[in-house]
């Protein structure tokens, strides 16, 4: 996770508003440093870092909102929308590897169960009738195997991958819209960081 950039010149004995402006200016800038990087859906780390940058800004707008006369609610809604979208993308990016790891875990469990079953089978006496013995072996093997759990996990993986594509498309649409609507300039004007 990208660490927040330090903010210079904070004076704790002065009023909240001028200090808040300094902090918010840096945090807004942090979001826009990812602008060129999030155009590629494969940049998982940058998308995650941008989500964290949005989250920091969102909390700061909530915390410092009291110090500003202008209603920051509409800006907060936009920031939250983008943060949520990036959060959903991140969930997909985390869940797919977890599900793949779960498949590997199932395989490991299965091989352990089958190995244990074979050892038990060697110790136990087998029926004289080879058909009965084979049927018993198959029954125990099926009980030890966890193959029936795999299709559902593959389905979940496919769902998450498909959702990720759709979410990323939504994110880029929203991000382009914010830039088109000069969101940064409007927010910085509302906060008194820049004059219109």
């Amino acid at each position: 996770m990208a660490k927040p950039r330090p903010v210079r010149g904070i004076q704790p004995s002065r009023r909240l508003r001028p200090n808040a402006r300094k902090i918010l200016a840096v945090r807004i800038d942090e979001i826009y440093q990812y602008d060129g990087l999030v155009g590629d859906p494969r940049n998982i780390t940058e998308l995650h870092d941008m989500r964290i940058a949005f989250k920091r800004l969102r909390y700061l707008l909530e915390i410092f909102g009291e110090a500003f006369t202008q209603d920051l609610g509409p800006f907060l809604d936009e920031v939250k929308r983008l943060q949520d979208l990036l959060g959903d993308i991140h969930d997909c990016d985390v869940q797919v590897p977890m599900l793949v790891a779960h498949l590997a875990w199932l395989e490991e469990q299965e091989s352990q169960s089958v190995a244990a079953m074979l050892i038990r089978g060697q110790r136990a006496s087998s029926p004289d009738n080879s058909d009965v013995a084979l049927a018993q072996f198959r029954s125990r093997l099926n009980a030890a195997r966890r193959a029936d759990e795999r299709p559902g996990i593959h389905t979940l993986i496919a769902q998450r991958r498909s959702a990720r594509i759709a979410l990323y498309e939504q994110f880029t649409t929203q991000w382009r819209r914010l830039k088109y609507e000069r969101f940064r300039h409007r927010l910085e004007t509302a906060l008194g960081i820049v004059t219109s």
């Binding site: 904070i10 704790p12 004995s13 009023r15 909240l16 508003r17 909530e62 009291e66 110090a67 006369t69």
Partner: peptide, 18 residues
């Protein structure tokens, strides 16, 4: 919902607001 912060005013000092 977050609790209301009692006594927080727009002209608060940074340290006290903290």
């Amino acid at each position: 919902q977050p609790w209301t912060v009692n006594g927080l005013t727009p002209d608060a000092v940074f340290r006290s607001a903290a």
